[in-house]
Design a protein around this nucleic acid. Structure first.
Length: 551
RNA sequence: UGCCUGAUGGUGUAACGGUAGCACAACUGUUUUUGGUGCAGUUUGUCUUGGUUCGAAUCCAGGUCAGGCAACCA
């Protein structure tokens, strides 16, 4: 059975390029600007670029597009490198557009010499005005006719710091009437006195994206430069620069960026959530950032699987959040250690358990035959979930109620005899008897019950804190919702609860993935300590009972 | 009124002139010491109008709708 996975449109292009001999091997790049943290949308691009190289036996560079020092910082460089590594990828070279500043400057001079660039003294407003509109051609100005010699001299003066910020810019001389706005004499260099995180104060002029990106690709001999759809109109300029400069012809291809339901994906909006305190930080587990998802308990495997499943195409999309949840459940189900934790406890007393205490064993992972078992102390006083007892059970309720029997996971079958309420009328204690013949693994009782409950021995329980996360927004498609996106923030995106956990959890390692039985997948928070164990809920289990109840 | 993209079930994504398939979601049934997992199954789709063709999701022409393009941002 050969199940050939069909190629996406970029893979098709690459295999043709390889088959035709256009390239012997391919080189891609992942080119973030270090002005924020990476999010799941970047993960799509990372998986694409690195995945392509892996698939076709090529390489991928990590390149920081650091041409705007006002917004960039080393903090972001470090976080980006950590995130890419965590996702499981290795770059061939670590590059910076700023490493090419001298070369880019030389490229600019070459354009001036060819009469294809000029220094413009106009203000930003004047330039915008003179550009016209998509339906009205732009008009030129007198600066456009400056001589090559004058342009050379003025550009050198710009570099030498002879002018104030914004006083002059270098523009390409292309076509002010072009139907493509990006070809109406685009800006190439601007004067900006800002400290650059790598070049310090060496430069006071910085190249614009359009004069840095394609040339950087070319310098590195990138074969396939892959970006998102909004750069389509830039491609004409990308090609123009490469042609006029007669440098290595990298080619740009575009795919649709990732959108997801119940979240936002723009760095600007994510920054707002952090700065205005809607979340605590960039790595808040509710954030769609790689660091937030890591802290939440997502695995690199599940994110890569997700990126694989969503595919690559040019059509705009909005992916169901449930697909991401599916991917992480699928992986965690295979690897997570099972533990028992009770969040909203009521006391269960086993009236006929005269031993008082017994050490039982429970499998760590039923999906993994080699996963081993752990010791779980059992006693005559246990905690169980309040919702696992019903005073007057309905007919489809498979749990505990007067006269009903259930199995306690990895322990015994019990039968409820009676219960006690407190003054407020809430259930306080449930009394039950156990069947000694029904011990897990050596059950000779012949009894079959429908429900199995998780539990924790009261005497042995350890206190833990659980962060139960839910989606950050309460509408699916934020792009088509009216008004400010912050109006749709889910006020219940975090529910912090105290819980009792089985003692094994205290000695477990920090990096371990857990499934708290019948509750969901959990991961220790970065702020968790031995004395104050905190777990983040990565994702809940599928809950068929909750669905049934809604009916 | 310009230019550039795109349009296949609820959501994604295949089919490259020849059976509209796959995944998620939803819904059944079944198994199960997690109402989890597994297994089996069901439902739902080619934007529109013409044309070419024995045959069109695919090719051609017109239309409609959606998104992008006028930062000294990337």
């Amino acid at each position: 059975m050969s199940e050939e996975k069909s190629l996406n449109f970029i893979e098709e292009i690459i295999s043709q390029d390889l088959a035709s001999g256009k390239y012997e091997s391919i080189l891609t790049r992942f080119p973030p600007e270090p002005n924020g943290y990476l999010h799941i949308g970047h993960a799509k691009s990372i998986c694409l670029n690195f995945g392509l190289a892996k698939h076709f036996g090529g390489k991928t560079n990590l390149r920081f597009d650091d041409t705007n020092p006002a917004k960039e910082d080393i903090e972001y460089v470090d976080s980006i490198k950590a995130d890419v590594k965590w996702l499981g990828f290795e770059w061939a070279k670590e590059c910076y557009a700023s490493d090419y500043f001298d070369q880019l400057y030389a490229f600019a001079i070459k354009l001036i010499e060819k009469g294809l660039a000029y220094v413009d003294d106009s203000t930003a407003e004047e330039i915008a005005q003179q550009k016209g509109t998509p339906t009205v051609p732009g008009t030129g100005n007198a600066f456009r006719n400056r001589s090559v010699a004058e342009n050379l001299e003025l550009f050198a003066a710009m570099k030498a710091g002879k002018f104030a910020d914004g006083e002059k810019v270098l523009r390409a001389k292309i076509d002010l009437a072009s139907p493509n706005m990006h070809m109406r004499d685009p800006l190439l260099y601007r004067i900006k006195r800002a400290h650059h995180h790598r070049t310090g104060d060496t430069w006071c002029i910085y190249p614009m994206y359009d004069f840095a990106h394609g040339q950087s690709d070319s310098i590195e001999n990138i074969t396939h430069s892959i970006c998102t759809l909004e750069f389509i109109p830039h491609r004409t300029l990308y090609d123009w620069c490469i042609e006029q400069l007669a440098i290595y012809p990298s080619h740009q291809y575009e795919f649709a960026r990732l959108n997801m339901t119940y979240t936002v994906m723009s760095k600007r909006k994510l920054l707002q959530l952090v700065e205005e305190g809607y979340v605590t930080s960039w790595d808040d587990p509710r954030m769609p950032t790689i660091s937030g998802m890591r802290r939440r308990g997502y695995t690199p495997e599940s994110i890569r699987d997700f990126c694989d499943r969503i595919g690559i195409a040019k059509r705009e999309n909005i992916i169901d959040f449930s697909l991401l949840e599916f991917c992480v459940r699928e992986h965690l189900n295979k690897v997570a250690q099972r533990r028992m934790v009770v969040t909203n406890p009521i006391k269960l007393v086993i009236t006929n358990f005269e031993k008082g205490e017994e050490i039982l064993h429970s499998e760590n992972n039923p999906e993994d035959p080699n996963g081993g078992t752990r010791e779980v102390p059992f006693s005559n006083e246990l905690w169980i979930e309040r919702e696992d007892f019903m005073e007057a059970p309905t007919k489809k309720y498979f749990r505990l109620g007067p006269g009903l029997s259930v199995r306690l996971k990895s322990a015994y079958i019990i039968t409820c005899e009676s219960f006690e309420k407190d003054e407020a009328g809430n259930i306080k204690t449930v009394f039950a008897s156990y069947n000694p013949q029904s011990k897990s693994g050596q059950d000779t009782s012949g009894i079959h019950v429908k429900g199995t409950l998780h539990w924790v021995s009261a005497k042995h329980a350890i206190p833990v804190t659980l962060n139960e996360y839910d989606r950050l927004f309460n509408v699916a498609d934020l792009s088509s919702a009216d008004g400010d996106f912050k109006d749709y923030i889910n006020p219940n995106s975090l529910n912090v609860v105290k819980a009792y956990a089985e003692p094994a959890l205290a000695s477990d390692v920090l990096e371990a993935r857990f499934q708290f039985l019948r509750k969901g997948y959990f991961f220790q928070d970065t702020k968790s300590t031995k004395d104050n164990l905190i777990f983040n809920r990565t994702v809940g289990l599928k809950d068929a009972w909750a669905k049934e109840q809604k009916k």
